[in-house]
Computed example of a mutant assay.
Amino acid sequence: MRKLESRRPRVVIVDDSRTMQAVLEQLLTLRLRYEIVGIASDGRSAVAIIEQTRPDLVTIDLTLPYIDGRQLLEALHIFPEMKKVVVSAAACENLAVKASLEKLGADSCVSKSRMSQDPDGFCHLIGMIMRNSKKLQEKASLLGMPAPAPLRGSSGSGKRIAALPILSYPIPTDEVERRAALQGLGLANDNVDRRLDLLTEHLAKTTSYPACAMTFIDQHTQWIKSSVGVDRGFTPRSEAICNYTICGDDPFIVSDTHADIRFAKLEVVLSGPMIRSYVGLPIIGSSGVRLGALCLLDTKPRRVTVEELTNLRSIARIAAELVEARWEPIRYAA
């Protein structure tokens, strides 16, 4: 009979938030006594760490730079013994999203808010997942079947994660629904609408920011539909800081783009319009889909104030109602 090794489960944490990295590390090490063998802030780094360490458990955030968390999860299917737990935003509370992630190989999906509210429940869930994995190994051993070998070091199975498409921006969890809504509402263009211009003009004046823009992003393009202080038109999606804004419900703030590795080399930072500070809020439709972004821009580093955020929130809500009422959905033949 094969004797199983008694050792602490080894974990890699994949999340671009330092706060969440610290929270997960504390829960997994202090409460569960697991061993953290790697922490990655983006999907590309995660691939390298996972291939080198071959952990027993990987926690994955969905909105990551370079390689989207969903793509990373799908790529890890070649390691069936490795447990994968998605720890992300409110999208994990959506049953359809959870089902699609589990189909890609997630052993469980936990929203960050629920994890914060019930850390004991989160630890209990992780413990159950890892215990069930150990029981399967023990059962295989009792039946005389080859148990999955523990994933240890780079000399493990020798498998390598297939090359993934490298993205310079994260992909929202509601990407399919979001783009369908843009198409139906006719928003993916730079056609002039005076009522939207009135909103951006008002926001720029009441916040003293030199530039303000309302953007909508389709598969490859960011459409600047209304703007003050920057040109209306379009940019490649890879140049859009608003990619990060439409991935969450909260304000996305960059006080100094030169000090942020995600944006320091973007063309919109290094040359026109030379964005140095950015504050964005998603334009959220009545169905909960994040249709676009409303943002404030400056050519110098600055910190946003509470009053400026309040104005931004108010105008973003008005913009959401206006764009849904302004365009009648276009019906396409099946």
Rank of each mutant, 00 (worst) to 15 (best):
L4E: 11
R7E: 13
R8M: 10
V11A: 00
I13G: 00
D15G: 01
D15I: 02
D16H: 09
L24A: 02
E25C: 11
L27D: 03
L28M: 13
L28D: 02
T29M: 09
T29P: 05
E35G: 01
I39N: 08
S41L: 04
D42F: 07
R44N: 05
S45C: 01
A46Y: 09
I49C: 05
E51C: 02
R54W: 07
R54Q: 13
L57E: 03
V58N: 01
I60N: 00
I60R: 03
L62E: 05
T63I: 13
T63M: 13
Y66A: 14
L73F: 11
L73M: 12
E74V: 09
I78N: 04
I78W: 12
P80R: 10
E81G: 08
M82R: 07
A89W: 06
A90I: 06
A91L: 14
C92P: 01
E93C: 04
L95Y: 08
V97I: 14
K98M: 14
L101M: 14
L101E: 00
E102I: 13
E102T: 05
G105Q: 01
A106C: 02
D107F: 04
C109W: 09
V110Y: 10
S113G: 04
Q117R: 12
G121W: 11
F122T: 05
C123R: 05
H124N: 15
L125Y: 06
M130A: 01
R131S: 09
S133M: 08
E138D: 03
K139P: 02
S141G: 04
S141H: 10
L142A: 12
L143S: 10
G144I: 04
P146N: 15
P146V: 15
A147F: 09
A149D: 09
R152Y: 10
R152C: 04
S157T: 11
K159E: 12
R160T: 11
I161W: 08
L164D: 00
I166L: 14
T173R: 13
T173A: 14
V176A: 11
L185C: 06
G186F: 08
L187V: 00
N191D: 13
R194G: 03
T200F: 02
T200I: 02
T200H: 01
E201C: 06
H202I: 15
T207S: 09
S208M: 11
P210T: 04
C212L: 07
D218W: 11
Q219Y: 10
K225P: 05
K225A: 01
S226A: 15
S227E: 12
E239N: 11
C247P: 03
G248E: 11
R262M: 06
R262T: 02
S271W: 14
G272F: 09
M274H: 15
R276N: 08
R276W: 06
S277Q: 02
Y278A: 08
V279W: 12
G280F: 01
P282L: 03
I284S: 03
S287Y: 06
S287N: 15
R290G: 07
L294S: 10
C295W: 00
L296Y: 09
K300W: 09
T305Q: 10
T305A: 13
V306L: 13
L309F: 04
L312C: 12
S314I: 11
S314H: 15
I315A: 06
A320H: 03
L322P: 03
V323D: 05
E324G: 08
A325S: 14
P329N: 13
R331S: 11
Y332K: 15
A334P: 06
